[in-house]
């Protein structure tokens, strides 16, 4: 028997009414008297469950409906139809007991007060979420240590770099240890080191507190490192919902072999072994079906004086692209 899901979405649809404007002065004039609306579906009939403690990646291109879904989950938007239940609450009712256990980080936006040190906003959230002084001190110490932001909390937020601000932002959003955490593009615009730190932190936080996290990202490294399960959405519909590893098997039947030889390669010979993606004198990249990999390796090593050889999964970007291609 599975525990009750933390997030339960059934047949959720959300449509927007967008006013249609005819071009030019005449159009503007006509719009004064008669407003024409076009109905734009943002999310259509999506359903999924997320179990307590799960960390799920939510993927899709721009305009796929990711942000709309997150806004419905956070209670910022009313659904047009369908059901959403989080911890047993309907989010758009914005009940206190729900909001006390909820948090959302929106990529380029900040709840931190721009002119003041982040520490001040932390105290504000302490008051809002009724965190006891003892808990507050402990959590702040723990979080600032994990994120390595001790000194940054004393600096006015406007003087922080984007990455530093994002860390402070995340810290501020989880001071009340929300059971549900939505992260919208948490690593957008950050450098690699900073991305890595943030990811480690999200993973630790998830493990330590057992909170449920839903994360959207354009950055596949985020998804690969953090999420066992992904939901892929495009055109307002779910294309895939399941384990990341299964998606790899299903959409990437091939592995990527990179090979460097001490002599110029015989390309025609290689083509007999697998699909050559690129070649350059003595090195080449091949795609080889998963099941043939060991057989082909044997042949390769026998035929070619190999200097360097690597076998990898296709880049996750490529796999996701294939998902979209196939379903689009």
């Amino acid at each position: 028997m599975n525990p009750a899901p933390a997030i339960r979405v059934r047949n959720l649809s959300k449509t927007f009414q967008v006013p249609v404007k005819a071009p030019g002065m005449r159009g503007a004039f006509r719009a004064l008297f008669k407003k024409e609306n076009r109905i734009v579906p943002a999310v259509q009939d999506i359903s999924f469950d997320i179990a307590p403690g799960e960390l799920v990646g939510f993927l899709g291109p721009n305009g796929a409906g990711k942000t709309t879904t997150l806004k419905v989950l956070s209670g910022l938007l009313y659904p047009t139809s369908g059901e959403v239940e989080i911890l047993g609450f309907a989010p758009w009712k914005r009940e206190k007991d729900f909001q006390m256990n909820f948090s959302m980080v929106m990529g380029q936006r900040t709840q931190l007060w721009w002119d003041l040190p982040a520490r001040e906003t932390f105290v504000l959230n302490q008051k809002i979420f009724e965190i006891s002084d003892k808990d507050f001190r402990e959590r702040r110490a723990r979080i600032t240590e994990l994120l390595d932001i001790g000194d940054l909390l004393e600096v006015p937020v406007k003087k922080l770099s984007l990455g530093e601000r994002m860390k402070a932002e995340l810290a501020c959003a989880i001071l009340h240890y929300p059971k549900i955490l939505l992260l919208d593009e948490p690593t957008l615009g950050l450098d690699l080191v900073m991305q890595k730190k943030l990811r480690n932190f999200i993973r630790d936080y998830n493990r330590e507190t057992g909170s449920t996290i839903l994360l959207t990202s354009h950055n596949m490294a985020d998804v690969e490192e953090l999420c066992k399960r992904v939901i892929i959405i495009d055109g307002g519909r779910i294309l895939y919902d399941g384990d990341l590893s299964k998606i790899v098997e299903r959409y990437a039947p091939d592995k990527l072999v990179t090979l460097t030889s001490s002599v110029p390669l015989d390309i025609a010979g290689l083509k007999a072994l697998g699909k050559v993606i690129s070649h350059n004198g003595s090195s080449a990249e091949l795609e080889i079906p998963r099941k043939d990999v060991s057989r082909v390796m044997g042949l390769l090593l026998a035929q070619v004086p190999v200097v360097d050889l690597s076998i990898e999964e296709l880049p996750i970007e490529e796999i996701i692209r294939r998902v979209f291609l196939e379903n689009g």
Partner: peptide, 13 residues
Amino acid sequence: REGDMDFYLIQPV
């Protein structure tokens, strides 16, 4: 415009 309203709405105040 700056999205602060969204933060006010998701907080329990």
